[in-house]
């Protein structure tokens, strides 16, 4: 049996522009979503620095607060917040695509899966805010 694709050049790939993701809005939102990873990493870094400051007494805390109030820091953190928010919204909207649930042969609609995710997000966020602000 001859495999018809055997003699086709397998290694040929048309060169794609490095900036292919600027060509369309949907490509751009894809790459922005992927770029949110940088700010997820950034948020962990901030958290680690804060844990360090909190456990190292008043002068470390004062330095941390001053650092967080720096205009450059605030600018970066506004951008980081927008990206993390974008990550959260796109993540919950993608959940029904990755997790297909069927009941009696019928596919459960997207909103029935992403809805509870959004609800849980609101509850968890309020819960954390309550725990932090209570003190």
């Amino acid at each position: 049996m001859i495999n018809p694709t055997e003699y086709l050049p397998k290694s040929y790939h048309r060169r794609m522009s490095t900036y292919w993701w600027l060509a369309r809005w949907s490509y751009l939102t894809f790459i922005l979503r992927e770029a949110s990873s940088v700010f997820v990493g950034w948020t962990v870094l901030l958290t680690l620095v804060q844990i360090w400051a909190v456990t190292h007494g008043p002068s470390a805390n004062a330095a941390f607060h001053e650092w967080m109030r720096h205009p450059l820091m605030l600018g970066v953190n506004v951008v980081a917040f927008l990206f993390v928010l974008f990550h959260a919204v796109t993540w919950f909207s993608l959940t029904p695509k990755a997790m297909v649930i069927r009941v009696k042969g019928q596919r459960v609609p997207d909103w029935a899966i992403s809805g509870p995710n959004y609800a849980a997000w609101v509850m968890v966020s309020l819960g954390i805010a309550w725990v932090v602000l209570r003190g």
């Binding site: 928010l85 954390i128 805010a129």
Partner: peptide, 23 residues
């Protein structure tokens, strides 16, 4: 995928409080 869910759930509120609202 686990990290995506954890960060989506928890990061916006963490960042909002400690990086924006408090400073």
């Amino acid at each position: 995928s686990a990290g995506g869910s954890v960060s989506a759930m928890l990061m916006p509120v963490h960042l909002f409080l400690f990086a924006l609202a408090f400073p």
